[in-house]
């Protein structure tokens, strides 16, 4: 799980990139707390071939990246 809540651009994407490059997970849960981060992580994940689902939990978002 990548917890990027409260972090500003581009740190959430950097964290996801690091995890993807290191472990190439089939599934990765990412927590962020702004729509900008959702969009950025989504764009990066899509470029790496992941399907992305987003759960809006009010103050934060849980994203599930699957391959």
């Amino acid at each position: 799980m990548v917890d990027a809540r409260g972090l500003s651009c581009p740190l959430p994407v950097v964290m996801v990139q690091k995890e993807v490059k290191a472990n190439a997970p089939k599934e990765l849960e990412v927590k962020v707390d702004s729509m900008v981060c959702v969009e950025n992580v989504k764009r990066y994940a899509a470029s790496q071939g992941y399907a992305v689902s987003v759960k809006d939990e009010g103050d934060e978002f849980t994203m599930m990246l699957t391959k």
């Binding site: 651009c9 581009p10 990139q17 470029s47």
Partner: peptide, 19 residues
């Protein structure tokens, strides 16, 4: 649009993201 002058080059260099 999240327009940002520095973000453009940064994302292009780091993630090959040209948005």
């Amino acid at each position: 649009s999240r327009m940002c002058m520095v973000g453009g080059m940064r994302d292009a260099v780091m993630f090959r993201d040209f948005n």
